[in-house]
Nucleic acid binder design. Structure first.
Length: 462
RNA sequence: GGCGGCGUAGCUCAGCUGGUCAGAGCGGGGAUCUCAUAAGUCCCAGGUCGGAGGUUCGAGUCCUCCCGCCGCCA
């Protein structure tokens, strides 16, 4: 029995720290696998709906994570978003909805070219390496996505070109000179008044460079009233609600047109009819949510992609990219005559032991290491359960072990063990309790997931 | 500075339109079963619900002010 004193993939030795309780559940991860793991990670079997109205082809539930920027391998923040999205996707599948869960990588831009050069590779090779590291992590975390889009995919470029043409024909793209201080890391111009000392970017704390370019601009300002109407008509468009206030504030204070091309960046999708410029990474990447809907090898048609299930039901993102998803993106879609998504949910950031994580602080939390030590179920469970969804959340190893032991090992683990071993005596003794638990939980889970309170009742979905 | 939010048990948080709302999970303490994993089961938190006024028969729950913390202001 001693050999089995580990819960869900956590080696005993890794948990044997000091006087802390050492024993996790006796079931090794693979013993539970047949009961818990229904599919090969990342390769979901197409769901077959048995609901009565399946014949009328109900709209799919299209759910997205951001397309992660491949300047660096995945970090815990990316993993958190994807874990949460996967939990929501699983819930929707339990409701027998056809779910299209989209994730992927955003691979263009100056910063990528710079990262590639630093690692001695050409941009495409660099993207291949980093993009595959995301896929590997999602497999390790049992993420069951349906579509993985890379913005360097051929089909994506076709969709971007077509979309650009639509926006152009709406009269929302114009050419203008722009001169200002540019942050290469943000890949955007900065207002002088927002800069830190020495004209440094407030986000990256690196000096911005003076740049003058002849760029193409998107007429965002034209969409101010339409965006206001959108939020007034559908306040659930931005969640949680306190972020709606922020978005409304941004719009109310006035929207400025933004540059959607770069003359100085080679690694990107060329602007149609002007190959001297490439399309701004955000204008490019956001369209990945649509191009992802196309099957591999399918003709790169914008309309065909839309017919595959657009609009998205939910964009799940971190709060740092809310502006792009809740302001720029719907305006771009309106311009192209395409439906806007149903909702954008901006979750919070993660801290470690109460501290902001960062390479410079040397306290990053590597999702890969966490999975290797504790197993995917434990990692998924902890972040879903212990982070108030929408707010910032904290990781500490002590808390992690406490929660996993108490909830997964002591409660669920033991129950599963006795189900697996058909210990009828124990099951009989506890039958009433488990029955009541299931009854209450089914109602509760439905309510909580429908309102994106994923941290409640999460145990039933892992 | 402007706008918005928050401050409820050691920790993370529930408490909708004011009247069993003083709660949950984890941690901690105690008891107990022994066909369960240092498991399970049962009991225990006397927290002035940030502070002070006010409205009300009655306020974490509404109003005002103060203190502290946080977010956004591209």
């Amino acid at each position: 029995m001693a050999a089995g004193r580990a819960f869900l993939g956590a080696p005993c030795s890794s948990l044997a720290t000091g006087a802390r309780r050492l024993a996790f559940a006796s079931l090794p991860p693979r013993a539970l696998a047949p009961a818990l793991r229904r599919r090969v990670p990342g390769r979901r079997v197409a769901s077959v709906s048995s609901s009565p109205d399946a014949a009328s082809a109900p709209e799919p539930y299209v759910l997205t994570t951001p397309l992660y920027y491949v300047n660096a391998p995945p970090h815990m923040g990316s993993a958190y978003t994807t874990i949460a999205a996967d939990a929501i996707a699983r819930f929707q599948r339990l409701l027998e909805k056809k779910v299209i869960f989209i994730t992927g990588t955003d691979e263009h831009g100056e910063k990528i070219a710079t990262s590639a050069e630093a690692s001695g590779r050409n941009p495409k090779e660099h993207c291949d390496v980093i993009s595959s590291s995301y896929k590997m992590l999602w497999a390790d975390l049992d993420i069951e996505y349906d579509k993985f889009i890379r913005t360097t995919d051929h089909k994506h470029e076709g969709v971007v070109n077509e979309f650009y043409s639509r926006v152009l024909s709406s009269g929302d793209i114009y050419r203008a000179d722009y001169e200002g201080l540019y942050c290469v890391n943000c890949e955007e111009y900065k207002d002088e008044k927002e800069l830190a000392e020495n004209n440094s970017c407030p986000v990256h704390l690196k000096p911005c460079v003076a740049r003058k370019e002849d760029n193409y601009f998107f007429a965002l300002s034209k969409y101010q009233h339409k965006l206001e109407e959108l939020l007034a008509r559908n306040p659930d468009f931005v969640r949680p609600s306190h972020r709606l206030n922020e978005v409304q504030g941004w719009i109310k204070s006035g929207l400025r047109d933004f540059s959607i091309s770069r003359a100085s960046v080679d690694w990107g999708i060329p602007v149609p009819n002007d190959t001297k410029q490439t399309i701004y990474v955000w204008f490019d990447a956001l369209l990945g949510y649509i191009s992802a809907l196309l099957d591999d090898g399918e003709q790169a048609s914008l309309q065909q992609a839309i017919d595959r299930g657009w609009p998205a039901s939910l964009h799940l993102i971190g709060k740092d990219i809310l502006r792009f998803h809740a302001v720029y993106w719907p305006a771009m879609l309106m311009s192209a005559g395409i439906s806007v998504p149903d909702a954008v949910f901006g979750h919070g950031f993660l801290t470690k032991d109460g501290m902001k994580m960062g390479k410079s602080l040397g306290n990053t939390l590597e999702p890969k290491d966490l999975v290797e030590r504790f197993g995917a179920d434990a990692v998924r469970y902890f972040f879903l359960r212990e982070v108030e969804f929408g707010n910032d959340g904290d990781y500490s190893e002590e808390r992690f072990i406490n929660i996993v032991n108490a909830h997964l090992a002591n409660t669920i683990g033991i129950l599963l063990k006795y189900i697996c071993f058909c210990n009828m005596y124990i099951l009989f003794m506890r039958a009433k309790t488990y029955y009541a638990f299931c009854l209450l939980s089914s109602h509760s889970v439905h309510f909580n997931y429908a309102s994106f309170c994923v941290n409640n009742d999460i145990v039933l979905l892992i």
